[in-house]
């Protein structure tokens, strides 16, 4: 444990990087998935294309996606961010589309019939009703990203993966354990927080 006590600041920095990477990737993914999902839920052709495309995107292995992006964006935070965002986007997109599709037709009909504008219907009725599905998708996305971000260390993305990776290189068990434990703890903490939000 001596190493840990001496390196608390760099461990903290790695944890901070990890959280930042996951958070930024989630924001980026949501910024694409939310509008795309809203559009796709109303247009069958776009829906098929978006769902099909995102299924392909999601099935690409994390490491392969990182490798593919390096020639385009180089090593570093940006490449890692983009890879993680494109990994989370399909999960969020599916959650938005299924959430919106789950709104009962009678409820939409009542909203139209009472004189809500399409925008009012979206914000006041459809999105609130899609929220449980969207939160469930967010939970999956967060769990996926917290672990996938570990791999980002391979392309210089930083984060807790760096501790594990250098620990493996140096045969430094304590370093590996600290990195791995913090990744697990982060995943569990985020999931617990989101589960509480889902219940509320």
């Amino acid at each position: 444990m001596r190493w840990t006590w001496r390196n608390l600041d760099s461990i903290g920095a790695a944890l901070g990087e990890h959280v930042l990477l996951v958070g930024a990737a989630l924001l980026l993914a949501a910024a694409v998935a939310l509008p795309l999902g809203v559009l796709a839920a109303r247009r069958p052709v776009l829906r098929a294309a978006a769902m099909g495309g995102s299924a392909v995107l999601y099935s690409v292995p994390t490491l392969a996606l990182f490798a593919l992006l390096v020639p385009l964006l180089g090593l570093g935070f940006r490449a890692a961010l983009l890879a993680l965002a494109s990994y989370a986007m399909p999960v969020l997109l599916r959650a938005v589309v299924t959430g919106l599709e789950g709104v009962a037709p009678a409820v939409r009909d009542a909203a139209d019939g009472m004189g809500l504008t399409p925008r009012q219907k979206l914000w006041q009725v459809e999105l609130p009703l899609a929220l449980p599905s969207m939160l469930a998708g967010l939970r999956v996305a967060v769990a996926t990203l917290v672990s996938a971000a570990t791999v980002a260390a391979y392309i210089g993305g930083g984060g807790l993966g760096v501790l594990i990776l250098t620990g493996l290189d140096q045969g430094h068990t304590e370093k590996i354990l600290v990195g791995a434990t913090l990744v697990c703890a982060l995943a569990l903490a985020a999931d617990t927080a989101l589960r509480r939000m889902q219940r509320a």
């Binding site: 009678a106 409820v107 009542a110 909203a111 019939g113």
Partner: peptide, 9 residues
């Protein structure tokens, strides 16, 4: 409408 079409939320 039938069932009222109330907003469940």
């Amino acid at each position: 409408i039938q069932e009222g079409g109330l907003f469940p939320h």
